[in-house]
C-alpha cells in the first residue's frame, strides 16, 4: 500500500497503515538528520509556506528545518492572532500565497477546522500544524514515533494522557493515532477539562491520577495553559498541581520502565515536578529531534503523492 494523500490534516482520517508508513519513512529521514551533510533534494523547486496565526517558535522552526533539509524554498508568513477576525480573510491570504507559487502550505491556526477550509478551496497541499482544539498531527506522529523507538511497539501499551483534554489538539491527535495502532488509552484530569463525550473515541476516563497511572507504560503530560486559570476550570494552579501534577511518588504506580513525555514547553513544578522533568529530559529532547524527522516524512510523502497524481 502506498501513501496517496495530498494533504495531512489529522490522524482521525489516516488509517493505521498510513500512520505506519509515515513512521517508517521517518526512520530513513532520521538517518538523513544524522549525516554530516543534512540535506536531500526531495523538495527541490517546491515552495513551502509556513502560515502561522499563532506564535509558535518551536513548531515553526521544526517545520522550517524539515523543509530545508529536503531542499524546499521556504516562505514564512506569521500573522497576529487578531488578524483572524480583522483584515484579510484566511482564504484570501492563502490564495495569495498560492499565487506566489506555494505548493505546500503548512498552517497553524487558533480555530478548529481552518486547514479543512484551505484543503477544500485551494490546489496546494495542506499540512495541519495545529488547528484550535482539534488536531496536531505532526506532534502526535512524533509522539508515536518516539514511543515506538523507546518501546519497540505501540500495540498493547497502556498510555495515559494527563491534563487539559478539552482544549488539547495534541490529546485528540494522539488518541486517534494510539487507538488505531492498538494502544490502550486512558485520559485523566479534572472533570471540567475532560469532555463528557471523549469515551466515544475508545478511551477510558479517569479523574484520579493515581488510578490512571496504575501499570502504565507511557505517560503523556499536557501543558496547562496558564491563561485558562481565569475561566473557572479549576480553582488554582496550586490545587491543579496537587491533584494532577506528576511527582516521583505518584510515578511509583506506573510500570517500572515507564516513559514520561511532554510536548513542551514545560511548566516546571506544575505538570511535572522538577526532578521528573530532569529525568524525563532526554525523552523530551528526543521528541524534539524526532519531530524534524516526522515532518520531513510528512513532506516527502505528500510531495510524492502529489507527483503521482
Amino acid at each position: 500500500m502506498k501513501f496517496q494523500r495530498k494533504h495531512i490534516l489529522g490522524l482521525e482520517e489516516l488509517t493505521a497503515e498510513e500512520i505506519t508508513i509515515v513512521l517508517d519513512t521517518a526512520v530513513s529521514m532520521k538517518e538523513v538528520s544524522e549525516r554530516d551533510v543534512k540535506k536531500v533534494p526531495a523538495l527541490r523547486g517546491v515552495t513551502v509556506c509556513n502560515l502561522f496565526y499563532e506564535p509558535s517558535t518551536r513548531t515553526r522552526s521544526s517545520f522550517e528545518i524539515a523543509e530545508k533539509r529536503l531542499s524546499a524554498d521556504v516562505l514564512n508568513f506569521t500573522l497576529s492572532h487578531s488578524s483572524v477576525t480583522k483584515g484579510e480573510t484566511l482564504l484570501d491570504t492563502a490564495r495569495n500565497l498560492e499565487a506566489m507559487g506555494a505548493g505546500v502550505i503548512v498552517i497553524r491556526h487558533p480555530m478548529s477546522g481552518a486547514p479543512w477550509l484551505l484543503a477544500k478551496e485551494l490546489d496546494s497541499s495542506i499540512i495541519n500544524a495545529g488547528d484550535g482544539s482539534h488536531e496536531h498531527p505532526s506532534q502526535a506522529l512524533l509522539d508515536l514515533f518516539t514511543i515506538r523507538e523507546m518501546k519497540g511497539r505501540i500495540k498493547g501499551l497502556k498510555v495515559v494522557i494527563v491534563g487539559d483534554i478539552l482544549h488539547s489538539r495534541v490529546a485528540r491527535s494522539n488518541i486517534w493515532g494510539l487507538v488505531k495502532l492498538g494502544a490502550e488509552v486512558r485520559v485523566v484530569g479534572p472533570p471540567t477539562l475532560i469532555p463528557k463525550y471523549i469515551e466515544s473515541t475508545n478511551v477510558r476516563t479517569f479523574y484520579n491520577l493515581d488510578a490512571a497511572i496504575e501499570g502504565s507504560d507511557v505517560i503523556i503530560m499536557l501543558r496547562i495553559q496558564m491563561e485558562r486559570q481565569e475561566s473557572v476550570f479549576f480553582p488554582s494552579l496550586r490545587e491543579y498541581s496537587r491533584f494532577y501534577g506528576l511527582t516521583r511518588e505518584k510515578l511509583k504506580r506506573a510500570s517500572e520502565d515507564v516513559t514520561v513525555m511532554h510536548p513542551g514547553p514545560i511548566n516546571r513544578g506544575i505538570e511535572l515536578s522538577s526532578d521528573i522533568a530532569d529525568d524525563a529530559g532526554s525523552v523530551i529532547l528526543a521528541q524534539v529531534s524526532n519531530g524534524i524527522a516526522i515532518r520531513m516524512a510528512m513532506f516527502y510523502l505528500v510531495a510524492s503523492a502529489g507527483r503521482n497524481q
Partner: peptide, 9 residues
C-alpha cells in the same frame, strides 16, 4: 456532543 468533541469545536 460526540461530533463537537471530535471536531474540537
Amino acid at each position: 456532543g460526540v461530533v463537537s468533541t471530535e471536531l474540537g469545536l
